[in-house]
Computed example of a mutant assay.
Amino acid sequence: MTQENLEHTVMFKVEKEEVPKAKEVLLTVYAALQEKGYNPINQLVGYLLSGDPAYITSHKNARNLIRRLERDELMEELLINYLGQK
């Protein structure tokens, strides 16, 4: 490196990873579980209660997708929609 290059500050910007909305995640995971022949409701309840990602298939990246959100965010979305709030 030359002396001139050492005198300039280089800007480095990391883009924030966009976090998907809980509703989108739940619908995507539901569809992936259904496609693989699982009962999506039972599997999602198992995951929400235990936190064990093994309840969610890796088909269509569903397991990685659901782990991007906290379980309480997913439960909040479910309650909001069930109770008709927001």
Score class of each variant (00 low, 15 high):
Ser50His: 02
His8Phe: 04
Lys16Leu: 04
Thr9Ile: 11
Lys13His: 03
Lys13Ser: 04
Asp52His: 14
Val45His: 00
Arg63Gln: 14
Gly37His: 04
Thr28Pro: 09
Thr57Gly: 07
Glu70Tyr: 10
Leu44Ile: 15
Val45Ile: 14
Lys16Asp: 05
Thr28Lys: 13
Lys23His: 07
Val14His: 02
Leu83Lys: 15
Val29Arg: 08
Thr9Val: 13
Tyr47Asn: 11
Met11Trp: 04
Asn64Tyr: 11
Tyr38Lys: 09
Leu48Met: 14
Asp72Pro: 11
Lys21Ser: 09
Ile66Arg: 00
Leu49Arg: 12
Tyr82Ile: 15
Leu79Ile: 00
Asp52Ala: 15
Glu24Pro: 04
Lys60Asp: 13
Glu4Leu: 10
Asp72Thr: 13
Gly51Glu: 05
Ile41Asn: 04
Met11Asp: 05
Lys36Pro: 01
Tyr47Lys: 12
Tyr47Leu: 12
His59Cys: 10
Glu4Ser: 08
Lys13Asn: 03
His8Ala: 02
Leu78Pro: 07
Glu15Trp: 04
Gly46Leu: 04
Thr9Gln: 08
Leu65Asp: 00
Val19Pro: 01
Ser50Met: 09
Ser58Tyr: 12
Leu74Trp: 15
Glu35Ile: 10
Glu76Leu: 14
Arg68Gln: 05
Thr57Glu: 05
Ile56Arg: 12
Val45Pro: 00
Glu76Thr: 14
Tyr47Gly: 14
Met11His: 05
Leu48Pro: 15
Lys86Gly: 09
Lys60Asn: 15
Ala32Asn: 06
Gly37Arg: 03
Val45Gly: 00
Thr9Gly: 10
Gly37Glu: 03
Tyr38Asn: 10
Leu49Asn: 12
Leu27Asp: 01
Asn81His: 12
Gln3Ile: 13
Arg71Asp: 03
Glu73Gly: 02
Glu17Met: 00
Gly51Gln: 05
Gln3Gly: 02
Asn64Ile: 02
Tyr30Ile: 07
Val10Phe: 12
Gly46Thr: 01
Lys36His: 01
His59Met: 07
Glu7Met: 06
Val45Leu: 01
Leu48Phe: 15
Asn42Glu: 10
Ala32Gly: 09
Lys23Thr: 02
Glu73Ile: 02
Met1Pro: 04
Pro40Leu: 09
Leu33Pro: 06
Glu35Arg: 14
Asn42Arg: 09
Leu6Asp: 08
Leu27Ile: 08
Ala22Gln: 09
Leu83Ala: 15
Glu4His: 08
Lys36Cys: 03
Asn39Asp: 11
Leu74Met: 12
Thr28Glu: 08
Lys23Trp: 07
Lys13Arg: 03
Lys16Gly: 04
Met1His: 03
Ala62Glu: 10
Val19Glu: 03
Leu74Glu: 12
Arg67His: 05
Leu6Lys: 11
Leu74Lys: 09
Met1Leu: 02
Ile41Phe: 14
Gln34Asn: 05
